[in-house]
């Protein structure tokens, strides 16, 4: 592991992603270069269909690029097989979605425990860790509630607790406030900021909302599969 990969938790070189729809070729990402430093809170903005989700999926090891190199957390991931990628994701990445995606049949606490099923540990340790994560997001009093008994903001907090419970290096959030009202969105963004500053999580967040992007330390703009100039 060289020094470069240590301070750059994400490094993309000439990443291209092409979809084929019948005979048609759609180039969604075009020769992308991107570096994100360890400890950064970066926002990714751009019009709908510009390729933000696709980029996030590539960084999170959910999809393979058509060309280019992807280094994340000191690992070159673009050629890993699906099994290796799954294991790698469980160790390094926490995902946060727009629609929370909690398991409706599990309580908040058990939802948070879900990623820990992939680790060798006692059920007590899992429970303790889940409670710690719920404490960080401020929801210990809702541990036994089912998702449908929670508000949207609370559901997203549980989802964030689930994303951080395995202590990943990088949080990838795809429009995490897209489905929330302004006040609740503010709370969630504050929580993400806290995770960044106090818990040292590197965060890459896709958002439409300029106010949300302002919370981040860095804004990356994207249009038609290309990265534009970055504003501070």
């Amino acid at each position: 592991m060289n020094e470069k990969t240590l301070d750059h938790i994400v490094e993309l070189k000439g990443v291209t992603k092409t979809y084929h729809r019948g005979r048609e070729r759609i180039e969604v990402l075009k020769q992308l270069d991107l570096e994100i430093e360890t400890g950064e809170f970066a926002a990714l903005m751009g019009p709908s269909g510009s390729g933000k989700t696709t980029l996030l999926n590539l960084i999170g090891g959910l999809d393979h690029p058509s060309a280019g190199e992807i280094h994340v957390s000191g690992q070159r991931i673009e050629r890993l097989g699906s099994r290796a990628l799954a294991k790698w994701r469980s160790n390094h990445i926490g995902f946060i979605f727009q629609f929370y995606n909690l398991m409706p049949v599990l309580t908040a606490q058990r939802n948070v425990e879900l990623p820990l099923l992939l680790k060798k540990m006692s059920s007590k340790e899992r429970r303790d860790r889940a409670m710690t994560a719920l404490e960080i997001v401020g929801l210990t009093d809702r541990a036994k509630h089912l998702p449908r008994e929670l508000s949207g903001g609370q559901e997203q907090r549980v989802a964030i607790a689930r994303a951080i419970v395995s202590d990943p290096d990088l949080l990838l959030a795809d429009e995490p406030t897209g489905d929330l009202d302004r006040d609740t969105a503010g709370d969630i963004l504050e929580l993400l900021q806290t995770l960044n500053t106090r818990h040292g999580k590197t965060i890459l967040m896709v958002t439409h909302d300029p106010a949300a992007a302002d919370r981040a330390g860095r804004i990356v703009h994207m249009d038609k599969g290309r990265l534009l100039e970055e504003a501070a």
Partner: peptide, 15 residues
């Protein structure tokens, strides 16, 4: 389908 996709995202292997 959606829930299974989330589990895979989290890192549950296909097997």
């Amino acid at each position: 389908t959606g829930e299974l996709a989330v589990m895979k995202t989290i890192g549950f292997p296909d097997s």
